[in-house]
Simulated assay, not measured.
Amino acid sequence: MAEFVKDVMTPGVVAVRPDASLVEAAQLMRAQNIGDVVVADGQQVVGVLTDRDITVRAVAEGVDPLTVSARTVCTPDPVTVAPHDPVSAAVELMRAHAVRRLPVVENGLPVGMVSLGDLAEAQDPDSVMADISRAEPDVRGGA
């Protein structure tokens, strides 16, 4: 069983500038087959933007995703973990803050992301959540 966040996280960070449009962020998510990006001002994490944020906080409100920035819609000042934090600390943070993803930050710099699915795969590889997390994404592009 994995002991540290570094053992379960997805290394590397996909990031957008705070002034990036939601369309830019969504296109990056599609290109990378991911559901979230870090919003970074230089090297500092200032937020996390998810596909759900774009849908619920912007599109459903009728705003123009070409003119609305990532900073406007993201979750600001996200809770983070360090690579050498115990996996149990990530679990507790997710539980306490009701979040599904945590940026992994080392010396102030984003180095990865840990998701609920990552934790499920590490903690209970036979669970339904782990099976779903291992599945290839549906990239058909249609409904």
Rank of each mutant, 00 (worst) to 15 (best):
M1H: 08
K6I: 13
D7Q: 15
D7Y: 07
V8H: 01
T10L: 06
T10H: 08
T10A: 13
G12Y: 03
V14S: 11
V14D: 14
V16G: 05
R17G: 09
A20Y: 03
L22G: 08
E24W: 01
E24L: 10
A25G: 09
Q27E: 14
L28F: 07
M29S: 09
M29W: 10
R30A: 12
R30I: 12
Q32E: 14
Q32R: 15
V38F: 11
V39Y: 09
A40V: 14
Q43A: 14
Q43W: 12
Q44S: 13
V45N: 10
V45G: 05
V46I: 12
V46T: 14
V48H: 03
L49E: 09
D51H: 07
R52E: 10
T55L: 15
A60F: 07
G62N: 04
V63P: 01
L66R: 15
L66H: 15
T67W: 10
T67P: 07
V68H: 09
R71Q: 13
T72E: 15
C74T: 12
V79I: 15
V81T: 04
H84D: 15
A89W: 05
A90Y: 02
V91W: 02
L93F: 02
R95E: 06
A96F: 00
H97P: 01
A98K: 02
R100L: 02
R101A: 02
L102N: 02
P103H: 06
V105R: 04
V105P: 05
E106T: 01
E106P: 00
L109D: 04
G112T: 03
G112E: 02
M113S: 02
L116K: 01
G117R: 07
D118F: 03
L119C: 00
A120S: 07
E121L: 10
E121Q: 06
E121R: 12
E121P: 00
Q123N: 00
Q123I: 11
D124N: 09
D126C: 00
M129D: 12
D131F: 05
S133M: 05
A135H: 03
A135R: 11
D138Y: 11
G142D: 13
A143K: 11
